[in-house]
Design a protein around this nucleic acid. Sequence first.
RNA 1: GGUCGGAUGGCCGAGCGGCUAGGCACAGGUCUGCAAAACCUUUUACACCGGUUCGAAUCCGGUUCCGACCUCCA
Length: 488
Amino acid sequence: MKDLRLYNTLNRRIEDFTSIVPQKVGMYICGPTVYGPPHLGHVRGPIVFDVFRRLLMQQGYQVRFVRNITDVGHLVGDADEGEDKLQKQARLEQIEPMEVAQTYTDAYNWAMDALNVLRPSIEPKASGHIIEQIEMIQSIIDANLAYQVNGSVYFDVEAYQKEHHYGTLSGRVLDDLIAGSASRELEGQSEKRSAHDFALWKHALPEHIMQWSSPWGKGFPGWHIECSAMSAKYLGLEFDIHGGGMDLLFPHHECEIAQSTAAHKHNPARYWMHHNMITINGQKMAKSLNNGIQVSALFNGDHHLLSRGFGPNTLRFFVLQAHYRSTLDFSEVALEGSEKGLKRLLESFKKLESIVPEKESNVDIEAVEKAIDAALSDDLNTPIAIAQFFELAKFINLAIDKKAALNVQDLEKISNLITVYFQGILGLQTEVEAHSDILDEVMDILITLRSEAKTDKNYALSDAIRNRLKEKGVELMDSKEGTTWKHN
RNA sequence: GGUCGGAUGGCCGAGCGGCUAGGCACAGGUCUGCAAAACCUUUUACACCGGUUCGAAUCCGGUUCCGACCUCCA
């Protein structure tokens, strides 16, 4: 095991990572609520935690990676009169709520596959764990830390605060929260004893399609309980890492800690990791701001901020070029920059095998490897790791121009770094998209004809071929090794 | 209003007491019939005002601006 260091939100500092069980890591990541198509905001967490998971695996850990699908429970609008998000969408579309959930679960996983995010070890659905949630709620009631009102159950934050500490993760002080919300409390009647109590179980009105029987009547689980119940079921009462977006830090994760502590007497996770948000023009993407970009739109360019599409590999690279705890500002210009940089890397990687090794070496590949390794182990510093691959690209390009000398060992090491780190951990593809075979053959004919025209100094013809192809979006590029082409 | 975080060159984005981040763009060069592409080289920086220090983008205090959370969110 290597010296892995992580920023732990719980203590607000970078700490050495050690797993509870040697060689094994359990991690739980908050997954999507499947009531809409995946958008850019959904993409960062999965990519970041995917890289982290791959890093752990490469370091020799056996990882159980759990990422849930939320298909029940979140409310729209005020807690008191909210209806289930999934139900609302279903009514609009005139289909079953579970059909909505399935559609968007599939869409989400389609996006994840495209982005080369490994599928979770376990992908539990909230709707499939109603019993576990009910049991957990009952434990909290038994501990006198929850109360029933009209068929709903609420977590009693103030009672909890007497024995424990509410706010360990977010640093919130309950008294401040109560004081700060005094003005809001007047809006609407609440069955809650305190504004900061949160629902564990919500009574369902007859028109709610998604509802289950419980000791408290028909209803559905509250906002936060599913993650606590499912993480405990699959990872144990205390597990290694719990991750999610910073927007979930409060109240979601704070509530999880309170629930688990109340029911299981345990803070569920030892390390809490939070990735930052993707912003557009400095503002985060959010439902309420209506500034999201769907993943499919990113790929096909069907969005007013985009003039064309960008591939999933580019998107993944773009995300990893920033540290996960910084905000990442999205724009087409920034994406283009990433795309070009990535292309530079991939082009150099392709040239690797054509390098004739020298006897002596005048580059230090080992230093690069150490730098990559150190960067990733230092709180997952992917931008530094990527910068090192640009060093390698420079070495490769210089070697081709005979301005640097790489020996056999160097070439092997570089190849290994690409396989293990670039592909294996960063999860980036090195394949440039393939063309169809017949098109390749046709292009070969055109390129040969043009080449013959050039040999005859018939530049009118050779330029005509090049220009007319360009009109169709096919660009020819001459080089010493011959002519290559690309289609935009 | 409360809590927390951030302000780095034209843009994105690392660094967080001394040592080039990196990418994109720009510029110069190589190659080329020309062009494009590719490759090489390379300029510009740490919001503002004080302080600590031999030395600060990096630490401390203040100022200004921005963002996140406190409400569904990845």
